[in-house]
Design a protein around this nucleic acid. Structure first.
Lengths: 150, 150
DNA sequence: GGTGAAACGTAGGCCGT
DNA sequence: ACGGCCTACGTTTCACC
């Protein structure tokens, strides 16, 4: 369907590192003329290989100094229960990621909050009050030696 | 040190959603003239509030259809052992994230691979062969109802 | 913070391969 | 089908108010 050659991969690598590269600079990096390069980038965007662009913000400097991963076990495995839980996660601004995983529990969340107190509030008032939730285990992030999705 | 007003927050929200917004479009969204808007964005970049910009790629369409989270327990808690492990994670292209966490194990990884076979190879040949690694538990991602860091 | 103008980058038509 | 050239147009960026 979409097959990517060497130049496409170079474009994707360059834009992953710096999504604000100008087309002119990008064309020099990948060794193409500006117009040929632009056409490729537009095609990658059109076909959904490039899903979008994002500014990467500093958690500390935007008042989100506390990050944790949480595993969530539900007490029912029915579709309505899952949908209700996922709806609640989508509505919660502290939840940056919600993954449906295999294993002993159903979900893995990434949560960002201002501090431990704000996290505690989220944990007990929001997560703890959902009727579908059975088990919660928190893993506080002390550091991220690697985070390419920063 | 860095205190952010309402307009700054609007800028950050807009650029988080679309990191390629032109300064002109951004200035209209936040209700500033282009030059004033640009000065703010440059200040946010200079002070590290905006850490960078990234293209968000489709895992499926770039040949990474398999995603898993892995918890890793080490058999020594010494600094050299941690550093050796973190070095190996930084060197492994399949590892997109490596977080140092609290709890029963030391690390949480996010790994992306082409398919289950490629993952198995990484799991046994790379992770399994590191002398510091004691326990490995894999959680395969079946779906991500929410992923704002996409 | 806004204005204006010069410098710069973008984007699309066109042609060659 | 894909790359390079050319050029009109839009955007960025900076000194100045």
């Amino acid at each position: 369907m979409t097959d990517l050659d060497d130049i496409d991969h170079r474009i994707l690598r360059a834009l992953s590192r710096d999504g604000r590269l100008s087309n002119l600079a990008l064309s020099e990096i990948v060794g193409l003329s500006p117009s040929a390069c632009l056409r490729r980038v537009q095609a990658l965007e059109r076909t959904g290989v490039i899903k979008g662009y994002r500014a990467v913000l500093s958690g500390e400097k935007t008042g989100k100094a506390f990050t944790a991963y949480i595993t969530v076990g539900l007490n029912q495995h029915t579709k309505p229960a899952q949908e209700a839980f996922e709806r609640a996660m989508r509505a919660a601004p502290q939840v940056r990621e919600c993954h449906n995983i295999t294993g002993a529990v159903e979900y893995l969340l990434r949560v960002e909050a201002a501090d431990l107190a704000a996290y505690k509030h989220f944990h007990t008032e929001i997560l703890g009050s959902l009727p579908q939730v059975n088990t919660l285990t928190t893993y506080v992030v002390m550091g991220s030696p690697k985070d390419e999705r920063a």
